[in-house]
Design a binder for these strands. Sequence first.
RNA 1: GGCGGGUUGGCGGAGAGGUUACGCAGCGGAUUGCAAAUCCGUGAAGACCGGUUCGAUUCCGGUACCCGCCUCCA
Length: 462
Amino acid sequence: MVAIRLYNTRTRQEEELVPLIPGKLRMYVCGPTVYDRAHIGNARPVVVFDTLFRLLRHVYGEGAVTYVRNFTDVDDKINAKAAQTGRPIRDITDETIGWYHDDMDALGALRPTHEPRATEYIGAMIAMIADLIDRGHAYAAEGHVLFDVRSYAEYGRLSGRSVDDMIAGARVEVAPYKRDPMDFVLWKPSDDSLPGWESPWGWGRPGWHIECSAMAKELLGETFDIHGGGIDLQFPHHENEIAQSCCASHTGKFANIWMHNEMLQVEGKKMSKSLGNFFTVRDLLDQGYPGEVIRFVYLGTHYSKPMDWTHEKAEQAEATLRKWRERTRDVIPGEVHPGVLQDLADNLNTAGAIAELHVLANAHDAPTLLASARLMGLLTEELGGWETEGPADGATLSALDDLARRLARLREVAMDTKNFSEVDTLKQALIAAGVEVRMSKAGVELLPGAGFDAEKVWALKG
RNA sequence: GGCGGGUUGGCGGAGAGGUUACGCAGCGGAUUGCAAAUCCGUGAAGACCGGUUCGAUUCCGGUACCCGCCUCCA
């Protein structure tokens, strides 16, 4: 069995993945707050950990891997949207979850084993909060329950911060009911306009961090193998998860390996609404970027480095995938290339693995290329189809066929007369219409290419 | 202020203390009426300053610059 090595943020070093339960692998990844379409930054961890999920299933067996990714469906952003639109919260979250599934499916991400909704685990959260109070790690105050960061000596270990340093930064909410400014909310009161649940501390709703601790415990147990998410979650979210879970557990342990993907940028800049470079996955799909192309761009940069989304990368990815799909058409997948597997097992080096795929393609080893690419969720049947669809409808395609025949006739004549001016005129017009013109001894082939303009084609047909 | 990431050939982007990354673009060739597509081949690198070493782009220290998180936005 291939040894998988992963960089562990918790220990700041690369480690061999040794399942806590032999033969079983348990992974938790922080999922979305469901109040709007997922943007392309949200999608990076989805693709990264989907690729890891696929690798783990390949190595340990499909049934041996349990992957949990939550939906945060109780949150003030959702409440705000409900208040703004007058729609019921459940409508909003159901709709958003549907979008999320559609969009992530389009990127070739497998559905996790479990996708728990926070609102379905309120009981487990209340139980964990009560347990934390009993153990002296949390306290109720003015309808809130707060975690006492001073009660947990390891607080700040994951993110390499000390409580005192963070207070010096003075970016924390100071509330009179807090014992320490860094204490964070486990439970907070709700008024009539907000969603809430009965609890020992009154009508209220959970703080953000407790849901992951509670759901991970319910679905994976007190300890498990891998916890993933974006690096932005390292503090405070993951720090707080660790504090809650470790203080509420019998072993004092939580996730074994912590993995964080770096952030995504757009054309070299932070994606933000104010810069106008903010895209949802749906935006890109609607603009015509196939989901597989988006996935390929993501996998082209190692997850531990900032990734830049650029149009140029997407174009190159599309050209590469187009070529590979042509080469693997009707090919039966062979064995996964050991080099590809080795690269993925080496801290999920997807960029290195893609380089190996290029080598396989150049070596004309289509069966191995296909099997290896599929391990990464590329060249799969589900993601295919886009490469042959093209931007032309059926009628336009038949118009192209007519033009191809006309061009072929003109060319035959020109071969005899040695006067190619008419052929070249038509060819240039076709190229100007975004048509790829392929002429060979076998004949003439016209394909809709980049910048294809159906109107110009119809004008040429006359 | 605290924490973290980065700086590699024209562009993108990896690994490895000594031997070709890889892709795109470029260049040469095959093919083509000319092209396109395809195929074959090929030049080009590691911010700066020190240190360790027989040897560093790769390890260590420092400098500069870029970026992110700590704040509703991943």
